Computed example of a mutant assay.
Amino acid sequence: MIRRFGAPPDPNRRYKMRPGAYAILQRGPSVLLTFQRQPEPEFQLPGGGIDPGESPIQTLHREVYEETGWHIGSPRKLGAFRRFTYMPEYDLWAEKLCHIYVARPVMRLSEPLEPDHSVVWMDPELAADAVYNDGDRVFLRRYFD
């Protein structure tokens, strides 16, 4: 069974399954987070939703590049968690199935392509406190402990 973080699902609400792939990217003593200003300001692990016909690894490469401008290498899956949330950018209640990887940031190719995203390098302990969801927090702490 995959662990759930956050609020339990509302039994009176329908949720759409939304799988995604997210990365812990360490370089030296820092970890890379994205800061997303809209729709709510928050720090996140870079990554996002898996598109139809796309593998989690393909998604990881695409989403990390779009959100950070970085090319990554050597992804390795650490685990997964679920959370039930409203996604205002899609007007969607979603059951997010979050696949968490660790990967190596290889080369910065550009600025983030996603609007309202910026790259923030942070101490891992501060990063674990800064990310907005408990699942990301648990995986960051587990990885760096």
Rank of each mutant, 00 (worst) to 15 (best):
71 H>T: 13
71 H>G: 08
71 H>D: 13
72 I>D: 04
72 I>V: 08
72 I>H: 09
72 I>A: 00
73 G>S: 08
73 G>F: 07
73 G>R: 14
73 G>A: 09
74 S>G: 13
75 P>H: 02
75 P>Y: 03
76 R>G: 03
76 R>K: 12
77 K>Q: 06
77 K>L: 03
77 K>E: 06
77 K>V: 05
78 L>N: 00
78 L>S: 02
78 L>I: 05
79 G>W: 03
79 G>F: 03
80 A>H: 15
80 A>I: 14
80 A>L: 10
80 A>W: 05
82 R>E: 08
82 R>A: 06
82 R>S: 11
82 R>H: 13
82 R>K: 10
82 R>W: 09
83 R>N: 05
83 R>G: 10
84 F>Q: 10
84 F>Y: 15
85 T>Y: 09
85 T>W: 09
85 T>E: 15
86 Y>K: 12
86 Y>H: 10
86 Y>F: 14
87 M>L: 12
88 P>W: 00
88 P>Q: 01
88 P>H: 00
88 P>L: 03
88 P>C: 00
88 P>I: 00
88 P>V: 01
88 P>N: 03
89 E>Q: 15
89 E>I: 14
89 E>M: 11
90 Y>N: 08
90 Y>D: 12
90 Y>H: 15
90 Y>F: 12
92 L>S: 08
92 L>A: 02
92 L>W: 02
93 W>Q: 02
93 W>T: 07
93 W>S: 03
93 W>R: 03
93 W>L: 02
94 A>T: 09
95 E>F: 06
95 E>S: 07
96 K>A: 00
96 K>R: 10
96 K>G: 09
96 K>E: 02
97 L>V: 12
97 L>N: 11
98 C>W: 04
98 C>K: 11
99 H>D: 08
99 H>C: 05
100 I>C: 06
100 I>Q: 01
100 I>G: 05
100 I>T: 06
100 I>P: 15
101 Y>Q: 13
101 Y>H: 09
101 Y>C: 10
101 Y>N: 13
102 V>Q: 05
102 V>N: 05
102 V>F: 04
102 V>G: 01
102 V>T: 12
103 A>L: 03
103 A>T: 13
104 R>V: 11
104 R>E: 05
104 R>A: 05
105 P>T: 01
